[in-house]
Design a protein around this nucleic acid. Structure first.
Length: 283
DNA sequence: CTTCTTGTTACTGA
DNA sequence: ATCAGTAACAAGAA
């Protein structure tokens, strides 16, 4: 599922190929994928140039020359893939890992002079929308601290943990608290910090708080380096799978041996989500 | 057929 | 007002 490292990988890929390009045409195949009125969406973005590509949490932001922002949320199965016209094959653009584009899950196409941005989404939870500067600031403000930014500081993190009673994993996934962590990385972060996902946030010792703080940065940074995790549908901006899947230590390893201590990985539900942890070395 | 998967939000209750 | 917990959403895989 696209979490911070996956969205960041797509952001970097798209920034390289989209900045400076002008939107020439838009094809909306599924109206519900575009929030608001389709005609207005089209009118606002056609002719605009892409000034920059940003990310806030799991939200991808294309800044336009008009001052508006074109947003994409991939939710669980969204893909955002750019193809130039050199890869044209019969019926579409052919990519080695996902086949020809557009396909039956392509809901939106943004067309440039040489190339097209395809928005695919099997589960149809993902969306695109256009917002003005004011709306953009409001949306950004709702998210919590970016864990890989200089604003993510231990003192404030520890203070916030101490005043919360909820399970630590549920807190890690709360976007208003920290932006960008989802189910896979929450499990991996707890494992790296040797903390059980069920522990109440306010029960962590100073040592555990520190371990968690550094695990957040370490796991997310490493996942970006390996271009994200492909569990089911995620691909990068060029349609390729992520390399962090091979680095996962606990996620989807129920009943298997712990790679650190040899204990058994257990699977339970925390906050309504499948949760994996080692019964021996996560205290 | 049932059960499981997840990011986000709406809703409930404290 | 703030916090915590859960159901709902969609569609496909097993």
């Amino acid at each position: 599922m696209p979490e911070l490292p996956e969205v960041e990988t797509v952001r970097r890929d798209l920034a390289q190929v989209l900045v400076g390009r002008q939107i020439k045409a838009v094809e909306i195949r599924r109206a519900a994928t575009v929030l608001g009125v389709s005609i207005a969406f089209r009118k606002k973005i056609i002719g605009a140039r892409i000034k920059n590509v940003e990310r806030r949490g799991k939200l991808l932001i294309l800044l336009l020359s008009t001052g508006d922002a074109l947003l994409f949320h991939l939710k669980m199965t969204g893909q955002l893939i750019f193809c130039n016209h050199k890869t044209v094959v019969a019926g579409g653009r052919n990519l080695p890992e996902i086949g020809a584009l557009p396909n039956k899950w392509t809901h939106l196409l943004i067309k440039f002079d040489r190339g097209t941005l395809f928005f695919n989404d099997q589960r149809q939870f993902g969306y695109s929308r256009v917002v003005n500067k004011n709306e953009m600031e409001k949306i950004k403000a709702k998210y919590g601290v970016e864990p890989l930014s200089a604003q993510f500081k231990f003192a404030e993190f520890a203070k916030n943990l101490a005043r919360r009673t909820t399970a630590i994993k549920a807190l890690l996934m709360k976007q208003e608290f920290i932006a960008g962590i989802g189910n896979i990385y929450a499990d991996e972060i707890c494992f790296a910090a040797k903390v059980r996902p069920t522990r109440h946030a306010n029960s962590l010792s100073l040592t555990e708080q520190r371990a968690l703080f550094s695990a957040i940065k370490k796991i997310l940074t490493s996942a970006i380096k390996f271009r994200g995790t492909t569990f089911s549908d995620y691909v990068d901006g060029a349609g390729k799978s992520g390399g962090f899947s091979k680095k996962l230590k606990v996620y989807d390893r129920a009943h298997k041996k712990c790679l650190r201590c040899g204990g058994i990985i257990s699977k339970i539900r925390v906050g309504g989500r499948g949760t994996h942890f080692c019964t021996s070395c996560q205290k």
